[in-house]
Structures are given as C-alpha cells and as structure tokens.
Amino acid sequence: MINPQWLRTFSVLAELRHFTKTADRLGLTQAAVSQHLRHLEGEFGALFVRKGRQLDITPAGQALLDYALEMEQANNRLTLRLTETDAEHGEIRIITPGSIGLLIYPMLLEWQIQHPGLSVRHRFAPDAEVLDAVLNNKYELGILTFKPDDPRIMATPFAEETLELVAPAGHKLCSWDDLMELGFIDHPDGQAMATRLFSRRFPGNAGIRSVPVKGYCNQVGLLLEPVARGLGFTVLPCYARQAFSRQDDIAVMDCGVSVVDQLWLIHRAEWPLSCRATVTVDYLRTQVDRAYQSCIQASDNNERNH
C-alpha cells in the first residue's frame, strides 16, 4: 500500500508544480517534499520531468495522480455512507457561483449555529468548475446557472435570479446616451449579462462593446464599489446587489422587462443525497425564496426612492 502522506504530497505537487509552495501548503519542509517524491519515484519511476524550475508530469506520474483521485473519491464515498443518515452531524460540501454564494453562505453559517454538529465547506467558483467538482465528488452539492446535459448529474430547479442594471445613486439611465456618458464597470460575465438585458431594454442598441469601459473587477462582492463611488454602471444578478452593504449609494434602474435566470441544484445521480444535505437544501430553498421576494421588493423601493 502506498504511504498516504507521500501520496498527498505528490498530489499537491502535481497541482502546484512547485516544491516550496507544496511544502508551505502541507506544512512541511522542502526537504521532506523531496524525500516523499524520491520514495515514490524509487517505486514507480520518474513522476516528473524537470526543465529548469518547470515540472512536467510523466505518464507514470499521471497514472499515479489518477490513482490518488480514485482514493480520494473512495474516501469521500465512505465518509458519506457512514454519516448519510445523520442530519445534524458531518460536513456540508457545496460549491456555487459568486452571486448566489454571497446569498447562501451567511444562511449556511446560521444553519451551522443551529446545528453545531455540522461543518460547512463552501467554495465560490464559475460554472465549469462547479460541474467538475461535483462530477469528481469533491463537493456533494453544486449550483449552476444552466441545466447540465450529463447523465451522471441530477439537476433540479433551485431558485430564480434577476439581472439588474445598477447605477450610482442619483443617476438616471433612461437612454443609450445616458449609458455612453456614464460608462460601464465590467466583470467576467458583464458583457454577456449586459447584452441579454439591453437587447430587451434598448432594442436596436449599438451593443455593450460600444460603451466606454470605466473599470473592471472579477470579485462579485466588490463589483459595486466603483458604482457606488459614481464611476460607472454595471449589470449583475440581484443577489450580488442585495449583498452590497451600502444600498443608499446605488440605484437599480427600471428596465421595463425582466431577465430572469433559473439556478439549478446539482449532485451526482448515482446515489441519493445524505440526510444532512437533504435537510440543508430544504432549509436553503425556503430562505432563498424569501430572499428573492425581498430582493424584488427592495429593487422596487430603490427605484422609487432614486
């Protein structure tokens, strides 16, 4: 049997491709990392090809990495089976996109306070990473902005999320010229979201690419900072706007028509959810539905007040 500590060291080294960073993550010395690798290479042959500071994994290394992933998945399945009937103890593992994550993470923490035997593991990630993490059993639950076409995945409707046009408080964006004058605060999904919303709000427009970009931020939790400071407008999901602390410094523009995304809860189809995950999902559905209604109401009030 392969020494599990050596295998863990190898897996992290394969991910980071850097001895010092691997040692830092694992709390080891660099000499210990090298020693673990030497033990494994003594048994399996060369696992990496060293080109200066660059590490390229060999076919033998890839085979060992696949084995390590299989062992991790087996351990996760064992842990799940041993605790799946206990609703109040064990780990809740969920991975989500940013906006819905900003909404549900505080809810999960409140749930954990109510059930101290639970441990919450949440990760923010784009759709592709969410799907990959659930497929590879790194997370039991995931939320996607699309319904995956994969027989290994069970997907059920989880929540709705409205796109919003958000401007600095005191600004009115009634025409395309208003958008051009104020400028756009972009983000990784910004142009796609703006295109979808503006195709309905401003039909026949010149396209979001024609609007001056006044800034860019890839952290959804910070995206409204430049908007609140008067530097531009943005388009983002309502839950991200709702999580912003300084609501008085921003205004949600009335776009006349709604662009609503369906969010999907996913998990592996081969086995049922653990009892604790099932109970937690029921709790989240109730809380998110209330938050959505509050979000819509707050948007209406925001528009009237500004």
Rank of each mutant, 00 (worst) to 15 (best):
A243I: 03
R93E: 10
A60N: 14
L144W: 05
T20F: 03
V260T: 15
F198A: 07
D132P: 00
W176Y: 14
N136G: 06
M154E: 15
L16A: 03
A68T: 04
L26N: 11
L55A: 09
F124P: 06
N137W: 04
T156W: 03
R201D: 01
E110A: 13
R38V: 11
G101C: 05
E161P: 02
R196A: 15
K138A: 12
G190R: 02
T156I: 13
A298V: 00
L55P: 10
E129A: 14
V227G: 08
Q73H: 09
E91F: 11
D249C: 07
L263P: 05
A228Y: 03
Y105S: 12
H89I: 10
H187I: 04
L102A: 05
E88A: 11
T85H: 10
E181S: 13
E164Q: 13
A60S: 14
E70P: 01
F146S: 10
P237Q: 13
N305H: 12
C238T: 14
A128C: 01
D132L: 10
N305V: 14
V166T: 10
R276G: 02
T29M: 00
C275M: 14
I185F: 00
Q242R: 12
D177G: 00
R77Y: 00
L231V: 06
L173H: 02
G61M: 09
K147N: 09
R201K: 06
G45M: 07
K214F: 00
G183K: 07
L78Q: 09
V259Q: 09
I266R: 04
A133V: 01
C238L: 08
P4K: 08
V213A: 11
I266C: 08
R285Q: 12
D24P: 00
G232S: 01
S199P: 00
A194P: 02
M107Q: 08
W271H: 15
R229V: 00
N302E: 05
L103T: 02
V279G: 05
D66T: 13
R53C: 04
G142T: 04
S210L: 13
A277P: 04
S99T: 06
L284K: 01
D56C: 11
L236F: 05
L16H: 05
R201A: 14
V235R: 05
S274F: 02
L263E: 01
A192R: 14
D177W: 05
L55S: 10
F48E: 06
F48N: 01
E303A: 15
H36V: 03
V235F: 06
Q114S: 15
E270H: 14
E91C: 10
S274Y: 05
E72F: 00
T156F: 01
G98I: 02
L131T: 07
Q112N: 13
D254I: 02
T96P: 03
Y292H: 13
I57R: 12
L265V: 01
L109M: 14
V213F: 03
R81A: 14
F48S: 01
A291Y: 03
D248E: 15
L65S: 09
G207F: 06
L131W: 04
S210C: 11
A60H: 10
M253Q: 15
G90H: 03
